[in-house]
Design a binder for these strands. Structure first.
Lengths: 205, 205
DNA sequence: GATTTCTTGTCATAATATTGACATAAAGAC
DNA sequence: GTCTTTATGTCAATATTATGACAAGAAATC
């Protein structure tokens, strides 16, 4: 791949996926960029341009076939593959993420790591909680596509460093701090506090 | 307020807040846009332009006073106020959000609502779980600045409608679906699946 | 206190992203 | 089968966002 698509486009892909999935469930087989625009809120022109970054999936006079388009978008995002995830931190958030149901989309949580002796050896849902001390050992034996950081801020960078050295392919960071990783490790952060602050701003303007 | 600041700027404010907070904790009292740029990753020019949307907080030849700038950014975001929150959905995610610690920033979780008789009447942390049936009654007696939707997708829109009718000022949506609300209700969604899909895309390009 | 260095606030320029326009081709109507 | 309608893919135009440049003011140096 690596067609140098802008992040603005990439971040719209999941919304297309979600919207097309809804249409499939409602039995809609055909959609024009205009009708999709009304539902999704992007302009018809933008929708056509977004899709055309990846190929010509539509047909003049007809529009797009929903099944086909959904398949293509899924492929583009990479949802035809299976991913191995581990979660670092068996607290409230780690637990919530472990049981979220991401495996339905091909993201499988293989293990959770924590440093609390009370938790190690137990399970969260049906996933084992392992000792954080064996993180490196685990990773030398098991491939990890996505490592989720759900720890306190104070140790997030240290964990990120250990994950990077152990060849995690990517990090999904939920700690409310900015971490840095080598170029070859992909990083995506979810800053809940940032989102909440944005809402606070909007409440006051 | 309502100075028509672009969302691009608004979404950077929390990161400034986070970064300045770190500096305060490390005893840094003075910062130039250049040095802040090195830490935060935005260009110095952008930083100066961002701040100047709200006033002239710096001084030529000196830079910015960290305490003062942190105070101003906090004010702009609206963090000098207290906010009343309720959470709808006492599942894993609702529980994690209830115990996240947002009250340190002035966001107080007053109640959690659920429809599960097993949960109603119990507590999550020290917050009461109330019957979703009394949502409207509760809201007629208690102001709600931010209502958090942490329910399954299937009922998210219905809950959003009830919250809107009951005059919730804003909705923080965690359900993996797009909900619509009246103009006067502010909406901020956190789509975890979108974030995860973005990471999947990055892993494959 | 004069001189040099630093750094802001702001404006001009450049880069990105979005929207509008339209030629072209397929679908649908008759 | 012809004509009208629909709707794509693409390019040009517009709008938005980010960067670069610099005059002017304050701090630091000597």
């Amino acid at each position: 791949m690596d067609k140098n698509i802008s992040m603005a486009v990439i971040r719209r892909l999941p919304k297309y996926h979600r919207c097309l999935n809804d249409m499939l469930e409602r039995g809609i087989h055909r959609i024009s960029s205009k009708d999709l625009s009304d539902v999704i809120g992007f302009s018809a022109s933008q929708i056509r341009q977004d899709f055309n970054n990846f190929g010509a999936f539509g047909q003049q006079g007809y529009g797009y076939n929903v099944e086909e388009l959904f398949f293509e978008i899924s492929e583009i995002i990479g949802l035809s593959k299976q991913y191995h995830m581990v979660i670092i931190g068996a607290g409230n958030l780690g637990g919530a993420l472990a049981n979220y149901g991401f495996e339905k989309l091909g993201f499988n949580v293989d293990a959770i790591f924590d440093n609390d002796p009370e938790k190690i050896g137990k399970k969260l849902g049906n996933i084992d909680i392992l000792d954080i001390n064996i993180l490196e050992t685990y990773m030398s034996k098991n491939p990890v596509d996505i490592a989720v950081i759900a720890t306190p801020s104070s140790i997030a960078q240290n964990i990120a460093d250990r994950l990077s050295i152990s060849m995690a392919r990517s990090i999904w960071n939920f700690a409310p701090t900015d971490i840095s990783v080598p170029d070859e490790v992909k990083l995506e952060s979810v800053h809940l506090v940032d989102s909440l602050m944005t809402l606070a701003y909007l409440l006051n303007d």
